[in-house]
Design a protein around this nucleic acid. Structure first.
Lengths: 197, 197
DNA sequence: CATCTTGATTAACATTTGTTAAGTGGGTAG
DNA sequence: CTACCCACTTAACAAATGTTAATCAAGATG
């Protein structure tokens, strides 16, 4: 079930693996597909797993009491996604993870992975690096909310996260930016009017 | 220069130290004071250091082009603070870290600390735990911006982060919530009117 | 081909926030 | 004690966003 490309992508997750390591890791990962619209993690799930996305894009979102959805994160090729409440806080997930395109993923058992990493000190750097890059990303995202206006946040997204703005519906982008779809539409209009003048 | 209380506080940073470990760590940490208003990290600094706060409260903030300050983080007793751009991205800090009260801190050389941790595998769990808890905090903070209104964010702050709301000026809380001091004042008025009716 | 569904846009109005500036009160320095 | 500074409040107006609903366009479905 492994082809070269798949192995290569998976290998990039951790930067310095030998063939034997890859074999070990392949044992704890299950290759599977998720169709657009379907879920990787459902509401209140406690399944301790992570997805390494080989193809496709996913989102994590919360559902408010009135049914409104608020997207907090997008993840696409060569990145991992998981429900942090399950994995890091040992409680049911209050967020949902959904495929926005047909996805091909490696589904990884989180506890087996952690155990593997615990027993292989040479991976400590990789784990640390991964945690740190996620932390930096989250801190920078907080910064955009505190420092920038919704319009500036959207412009920055267009510039620096074209992977998101090109592949995801506007309504999801709006909630990702902390605004409504109507407001995003107005911002888009404002921008296009300024550019043409 | 060490008294019992100081040792005890420092010990809590990592949960399972013996006397010898404490001695080693004390060598790489410098105990010092920072007066209210003074800076722990200045703009564009590249000093790779961390503060473990034994007493007092600090904030990290950005300065916009027009001179406006936007606070992104508060840290107080028994927590650490540092400039993530210096430490995790190896670049000059675009944020500033300032004491809001007279502070007593352990100033720790980040690289020596990391080296120490690298050479002592028994601390890996502590490092991982610390990174994870910072990540969880940042993710939850993103969530409040995406899911909640400014008023709800403020109410939540009052409930769950009284350490902040009790000790910090409103203008800093306002920018921490992503709004202006004027708007926060109106929110406070709205809340007090609802409670009395 | 016609119909249905859904996402994006637009409009109209209410609400909130931003901005600027004027008061208010507490604390501090002289 | 007085004068000054600073944070917070309040006011007035502009701007942006939220809300609801109508319209439009495109894709899916029969």
């Amino acid at each position: 079930m492994l082809n070269k490309e798949q192995i290569f992508d998976f290998l990039k997750l951790f930067k310095f693996l030998n063939a034997q390591d890859i074999y070990k890791l392949s044992k704890l990962a299950k290759y599977r597909k998720i169709k657009a619209g379907e879920f990787f993690v459902e509401l209140h799930s406690e399944r301790r797993k992570v997805a390494y996305i080989q193809r496709g894009i996913m989102r994590a979102y919360y559902v408010k009491n009135d049914g409104e959805e608020r997207t907090v994160m997008f993840r696409w090729e060569k990145h991992t996604i998981g429900a942090f409440e399950i994995l890091l806080e040992n409680k049911p997930s209050s967020q949902v993870i959904q495929a926005l395109e047909d996805c091909k993923i490696w589904e990884i058992d989180y506890d087996i992975l952690q155990d593997f990493l615990d027993r292989h000190p040479k991976f400590e750097k990789a784990r640390k690096h991964m945690l740190q890059s996620m932390l930096v990303e989250a801190l920078k995202r907080v910064e955009t909310f505190v420092v920038e206006s919704p319009e500036d946040r959207y412009k920055k997204l267009l510039k620096e996260q074209s992977e998101i703005s090109d592949r995801v519906q506007d309504k999801h982008i709006a909630s990702f930016l902390g605004i409504t779809p109507v407001s995003l539409s107005r911002i888009r209009k404002r921008i296009s009017e300024k550019k043409s003048s």
